[in-house]
Design a protein around this nucleic acid. Sequence first.
DNA 1: CGTGCAGTTGAGCAAATTCAACGCTTGTGG
DNA 2: CCACAAGCGTTGAATTTGCTCAACTGCACG
Lengths: 222, 222
Amino acid sequence: MLMQSAVNARQFHPAVAAAAPGEREAVDMMGVVMTFKRNAEIYGENEAADYLYKVISGAVRTYKVLADGRRQIGSFYLPGDVFGLEVGSEHAFSAEAVTDTRVLVTKRSVLVSRAERDASAARQLWEVAARELRRAQEHALALIKTAEERVAGFLMDMAKRSSQPDRIDLPMSRQDIADYLGLTIETVSRTFTHLEAIAAIDLPSSRRVVLRNRAALSRLTG
Amino acid sequence: MLMQSAVNARQFHPAVAAAAPGEREAVDMMGVVMTFKRNAEIYGENEAADYLYKVISGAVRTYKVLADGRRQIGSFYLPGDVFGLEVGSEHAFSAEAVTDTRVLVTKRSVLVSRAERDASAARQLWEVAARELRRAQEHALALIKTAEERVAGFLMDMAKRSSQPDRIDLPMSRQDIADYLGLTIETVSRTFTHLEAIAAIDLPSSRRVVLRNRAALSRLTG
DNA sequence: CGTGCAGTTGAGCAAATTCAACGCTTGTGG
DNA sequence: CCACAAGCGTTGAATTTGCTCAACTGCACG
């Protein structure tokens, strides 16, 4: 299988083709596993959207940079999440690894042509797009709220996606959170501190959050 | 055709079935035309999303109301725009007519089953979803910007969708615009006035905007 | 043991909101 | 036909929220 993907290297992601054989690992016939170091670019805005990605471990952020340097993070993707599906032929956002990350990479055309034959594959593809739409809608909804509501909502969302029910290990920096929520790092930091002060959360370390009072937190959500 | 839709009333929108024959008009086999008065509800959040709507004339807003009464407008739909397509089985937003509005209503299942046979119909359906996703992403992007950037961007967007190149007839109130942009009516009003003061726009009346300096406006877009 | 990065905290400031008053248009009833 | 109420929009003043600028801490890594 590994040898076969070497033979078919041209059908995979450029970085896959370039990688030495030992750096990639075939998982099944649906794609190859790639690893990205912290902050490494996975793809760039306006690049051809020829591949779909599924996070195996680590975390990914998609983002845009405005003309004046402001950065807007579109989404964070955690293990199990699929990203890179675009409505057009090009990526609308850039994607980077937040931490060292392993992703399963599959050629989009393979999935699309399979979807044309297999209704359940088509439905899966639709599901990915659907999730993306819902995410964007909820993100827009969050951005009309106050700083405290945004941060509380972010934590609730992360908790829901976390493996442990009430503990969150944040893979991303305060700057990442700020750029996702449309706030400054200072405001995010202050809000974390404030949420700790009112006993809604605990902050054993800056990247670890324990939900101490879910009810209070969800009341702050707006 | 009109009589036939009367016979098949059960497959149409409840309001269609309830309407007297003279109040609806069949356009083609894809659906029936319905009219909604200013501020009339077209569908509600959490209702079954069994129909697709295409604006013929007028304007439509989709929105959610938060627990504390704040309203977030998801989108405005102008003639030619399709709305009501949801990723799940229920509407994520409510929809209302902004002004007296005529829409073409089609049963979703009809389009879906056609898409299963006809690839171009499938592509059209995908296109509608794609536009919706792009819209939501751009909306989120707009909401991290300053008030002036949001308003300028909104006007540029409306101008792009307007029939006349540099003149916009706004169908919606300042409150609608404010709820769409995540601002207050006062801030929207002040920003309009300010844009007029710097000669970026003219305001012959409160609902009419003339773009006087597109370059200045797009510079303010961020 | 420094150096650099990430995060926190404080003080002052700018942007947007809130509260309030007022003008204009529209529609309605006397 | 006029008077007046209601809705919409604008403007002003005070207040609040979040941002900017700046200093400082803790920690990891060379």
